[in-house]
């Protein structure tokens, strides 16, 4: 039932012109679910993730977030777009998104990056937002860097701040779009560590990743996408250890 899941996606299609990237994907996540989405590049996993909060407009489908159906209407390009911008903004505020390229705002300090959402969107007082931001920054070990600008810290640190910026919104679900793919290998661990902690806290997360070992350890469900379709879905031990689909077997053995 879409009503009692954190997120429920039905029959998501996405085409770019004639190119069909997603061909009908369903996914439901309940509270405390950590779902990893894996697949070769071009399989549509990032597009799928971006469709959830309408960074990408799906061509077809239904989106339910925390029991509320997102109102969609067809736009000029033939895609589905939000028909109620206010509802979309409110739903996005409840769904965190962590980008591959961090996308911190370079003209703001780390602290300013983090309190922007709570003060401007959620209407929290500045003092309250700062106190919470400092507490969150302490957790990722970057409290003394709060007045730095993003360009002054490393990629791994930037990604930790980007995760903190998302956490400051107290999201009910966090989407991770290949959060370690833009990092130097030696910086990957620190970001995965933070994500592991979040999973341990019982946060609901959807993670598009190429870190198979991490996906296997952290998630309770794994979705394997191939050419825009779900080829395999299940418990990580099953998907990684004993996949039923031939393509999934090939993929796993090639990367893992």
């Amino acid at each position: 039932m879409p009503e009692n899941s954190v997120i429920c996606l039905k029959n998501i299609h996405k085409s770019f012109g004639d190119l069909k990237v997603l061909k009908g994907i369903d996914l439901q996540a309940h509270e405390h679910d950590v779902i990893s989405i894996i697949g070769s590049s071009g399989s549509g996993k990032s597009t799928f993730l971006r469709c959830i909060n309408l960074l990408e407009t799906p061509t077809e489908g239904e989106i339910w977030i925390t029991g509320e159906k997102l109102k969609l209407a067809r736009n000029k390009k033939g895609d589905l777009d939000a028909s109620d911008p206010r509802q979309l903004a409110a739903m996005r505020a409840r769904v965190g998104f962590v980008f591959q390229n961090f996308n911190l705002w370079p003209h703001k300090t780390l602290l300013e990056n983090i309190i922007e959402g709570p003060t401007q969107v959620l209407g929290k007082s500045k003092d309250e937002a700062i106190a919470y931001a400092e507490q969150l920054l302490r957790r990722v070990g970057l409290e003394e860097r709060k007045d730095f600008y993003p360009s002054q810290i490393s990629g791994g640190q930037q990604q930790r701040v980007a995760i903190t910026r998302t956490l400051a919104m107290d999201p009910q679900l966090i989407l991770f779009d290949e959060p370690t793919s833009a990092l130097d290998p030696e910086l990957v661990g620190e970001v995965l560590g933070v994500m592991r902690d979040l999973a341990g806290e019982g946060r609901t997360m959807l993670i598009v990743t190429h870190e198979m070992q991490f996906a296997r350890e952290v998630s309770n469900k794994v979705m394997f996408l191939h050419q825009g379709q779900v080829e395999e879905f299940g418990h990580p031990d099953q998907v990684f250890g004993n996949p039923t689909s031939e393509r999934c077997r090939e993929f796993i053995s090639s990367v893992y």
């Binding site: 911008p85 996005r92 769904v95 996308n103 911190l104 705002w105 910026r165």
Partner: peptide, 20 residues
Amino acid sequence: GEIEAAKTIGMRRVMLYRRI
């Protein structure tokens, strides 16, 4: 990406322009 980051925290158009 910076614009998308603003959208994902729930900013609407006017705030997006004013703040980011």
